[in-house]
Amino acid sequence: MSPATAALTKRQLAARVAADIPRGAYVNLGIGLPTLVADLLPADADVTLHTENGMLGMGPAAAPGRADPDLVNAGKTPVTELPGASYFHQADSFAMMRGGHIDVCVLGAFEVSTRGDLANWSTGEPGAVPAVGGAMDLAVGARRTVVMMTLLTKDGRPKLVETCALPLTGVRCVSRIYTDLAVFDVGPTGARLVETFGTTAAELEDALGLRLRRAE
């Protein structure tokens, strides 16, 4: 277990996610927190970024004054293209996902269950205007779907849960969860603690109200 003595900052968390992305991978980063991962990939990572609105080889955000309205990412933020980039239409972009060609997808989440169910599109509040975008396609389409989130909500409730209470995005689709306090593997046999940051397994079990299997 890692001897980290404090919870990770967002940037450290993004670096931790980036460290697990295999060299040469094709990767989709969800909007919000996961977008940070792009800035923290090692220089020799040779990672190709996919954006589901129709591009491979996406580069960093466009510099101020250099935005091209025809070149945006999934969050509709102006971005840039790298040498070797390609463009394609929406059906091809999601076929790339569904067909198992994208190696890793990093998504944000409201809740993840210990068996890997994901809830990240609806807070379930009455009167809320719903929106789903590509979340459901991404969750089940990538070869490996991981989540990046804070472990607790702003008011201290766990986001890793036995059973999701919020409307699901996908069933048993997440394999690993990266949080500010710990990394977990989730799946058919429940949650397994991989690494902690500034906390202990016992403290986590207490905070989450869950039994966690431990890494050897």
């Binding site: 929406q90 972009s93 999601f94 590509g134 979340a135 459901m136 396609d137």
Partner: peptide, 8 residues
């Protein structure tokens, strides 16, 4: 409401 890939 339709997931984006299903819409496409």
């Amino acid at each position: 409401l339709v997931p984006q890939g299903n819409l496409a």
